[in-house]
Design a binder for these strands. Structure first.
Lengths: 162, 162
DNA sequence: AGAAATAGGGATATTTTTTGTCCTTAATAG
DNA sequence: CTATTAAGGACAAAAAATATCCCTATTTCT
């Protein structure tokens, strides 16, 4: 069970978009080139962000993506779920229903105990992701990325932002 | 990203094995029949439990599986990891290394910040699973499964345990 | 000794998911 | 009018999940 690589891509892209000046847009092409990713496929991840309402888009030359809200209002969970979906990581197929000792028409009232426990763990994972904001990531990056690289990257993005 | 169905199977099988009297064994055949699962494939999940040292096995008629330790000493995490593996759910492909602004030979000192955050969430998931023991599950099941069904199931298993 | 049942594990097949490419359409900027 | 963009559908390739089949060594029972 491994998350799609698109999750990683989306998070890094959002980090870049977080640094974009107000009202400007960055294209799939620029984001793909910056991260060394296949443009067409990255596009699917960005479309997921768009459909989830996390980013705004514009068409035409100088078009592209920008965040739909402030980095402090955008959580990791929102980004992860936009790409990966909201279905729980544990799926209960209710195999207890196959127990040969059960009465034929017997119907369960509560979800399976195994599933409930697994879902609690799933929730713990989501709680953690919900507690981290995009702005937290940007703060960390600003601290640990060498300032010259940080500046050059910022400049690189600005030159390509519509 | 969804866990293998074998995880569900392994958890349910361990719950059954937890009720097995000291020194007795239950076969793949019985476990598969009880849960309505494909015997050959379930066998792979049980082999994973065996390789992880969570269960003991014996060969021959009356052979099968029993827990290698008390249900109170066996955590959900151990079972899940035995089947699903111990690799983290988020894999970092270090796409920051593709940044065109980086100096050619530049080498990162710390893991990517995005990965660190995702791994923390992964740890939260594992922490939760580690906090639940197989005996906790058995307690819950004992409470919510109708007592006649519980007894019949126990009997069913006993009749097939070697 | 022989027959039957078992776990272990290798080989293979099928299905689903992930990853990726290609192309068309509508919108936008210059 | 042209170039560029996002959106999205169709399709292809690769990887992973889900099986199935078969052989071997071991154990139990007769």
């Amino acid at each position: 069970m491994i998350l799609k690589s698109q999750v990683e891509w989306a998070l890094h892209c959002c980090a870049i978009l977080a640094g974009l000046p107000e009202g400007r847009y960055l294209s799939t092409k620029a984001l793909a080139e910056f991260h060394g990713l296949p443009k067409e496929y990255l596009s699917k991840a960005l479309q997921s962000l768009s459909q989830a309402g996390l980013v705004h888009t514009t068409l035409g030359p100088s078009g592209g993506y920008r965040l739909a809200k402030a980095p402090a209002e955008l959580t990791f969970l929102e980004i992860v779920e936009a790409v990966e979906g909201r279905t729980r990581t544990f799926v209960c197929t209710n195999i207890r229903a196959n127990n040969p000792c059960r009465a034929p028409g017997y119907c369960d009232e509560t979800p399976c105990a195994v599933a409930r426990i697994m879902w609690e763990a799933d929730e713990a994972w989501r709680d953690k992701l919900r507690s981290v904001r995009l702005s937290d990531l940007v703060e960390i990056l600003a601290k640990e990325i060498p300032s010259d690289l940080w500046k050059r990257s910022f400049q690189w993005v600005l030159e390509r932002a519509g």
